[in-house]
């Protein structure tokens, strides 16, 4: 028989070279594990970079306009449409209020960020219960920053709080109300917006801390609203009848977002369907 003249040694050498090339190339298709947590520097500290941009670019000294959304988890098509719509709005920044990802995968965080980077305004990512699955907490921390954090724009203090109690087996430190109380007692702001994924009246919030949370907000006297997501539906009201408004943004498959205008001691909001 006439076989082509390819020796084993020839193939051995070719394959060896190909392997070295592929490994050296570190092409992203060579995933090590779905829960791997390595990130490029350009993907890190997104929140602190966004805050810097927000503070440098805020135009109107009296009002602040924010867009509130939540639960982008596995709704990438809808999130893309949201960006198209939100780019038509005049707003200072967008708050993505938790459940950025569905399974806590690095891939998912990257898909969402890639879509959100096409916004013509900065965005802030908040931790949600789904984001804590797998190694999601490690990825969130590298990518966005601390789970509890705050920043001030135009005298408005935004306090980002991890309220995903069930993910921590209802530990008494989630949410961290001592930290929240300290944040609400500083003298460097005028009005505060407390931003967290799970609202206190939801069964995923530590029931032992529900009343303390509500009291911490109402006793501060400076909280404009408690802003949430997680429930995949719009909610608005004063569930504790204590003067504190609770506002819940929808999930992205509801194709709705909130435009909130904050000025002085007041605010207005509009539901936008897209």
């Amino acid at each position: 028989m006439n076989y082509p003249k390819i020796s084993g040694r020839y193939i051995f050498r070719k394959v060896y070279r190909l392997c070295i090339l592929m490994i050296a190339g570190a092409c992203s298709v060579f995933e090590y594990h779905p829960y791997e947590t390595m990130l490029d520097d350009s993907e890190k500290n997104l929140n602190s970079r966004a805050i810097k941009t927000i503070q440098e670019n805020v135009s109107d000294p009296d009002t602040l306009t924010i867009i509130a959304i939540g639960d982008s988890q596995r709704f990438y098509d809808e999130l893309k449409d949201f960006v198209k719509s939100a780019n038509q709005q005049k707003a200072d920044f967008v708050i993505l209020n938790g459940d950025i990802s569905d399974f806590g995968l690095k891939d998912e965080y990257q898909w969402v960020d890639e879509i959100m980077q096409t916004l013509n305004k900065p965005y802030i990512g908040v931790i949600g219960n789904h984001d804590l699955s797998g190694n999601g907490e490690k990825i969130y921390t590298k990518m966005y920053g601390p789970l509890n954090t705050s920043f001030i724009v135009n005298g408005f203090k935004f306090i980002l709080l991890n309220t995903n109690s069930r993910e921590y087996a209802f530990s008494s430190s989630v949410p961290d109300l001592n930290w929240l109380n300290a944040e609400l007692n500083t003298h460097d702001f005028h009005r505060a917006i407390v931003v967290s994924h799970v609202p206190p009246y939801d069964s995923d919030f530590n029931p032992d801390l529900e009343v303390s949370y509500a009291n911490t907000l109402s006793q501060s006297g400076r909280v404009a609203m408690s802003l949430h997501a997680h429930r995949h539906t719009f909610e608005y009201g004063q569930p504790y009848q204590d003067g504190t408004d609770y506002l819940v943004a929808t999930s992205m498959n509801e194709r709705m977002y909130l435009v909130i205008r904050l000025y002085g001691h007041q605010y207005t909001f509009t539901k936008i369907f897209y």
Binding site: R74, D77, D102, L105, D107, W111
Partner: peptide, 13 residues
């Protein structure tokens, strides 16, 4: 879990 993400989001992914 990646497959189900893709099937539901063929435009964005």
């Amino acid at each position: 879990i990646k497959l189900v993400s893709y099937i539901q989001n063929k435009h964005a992914l």
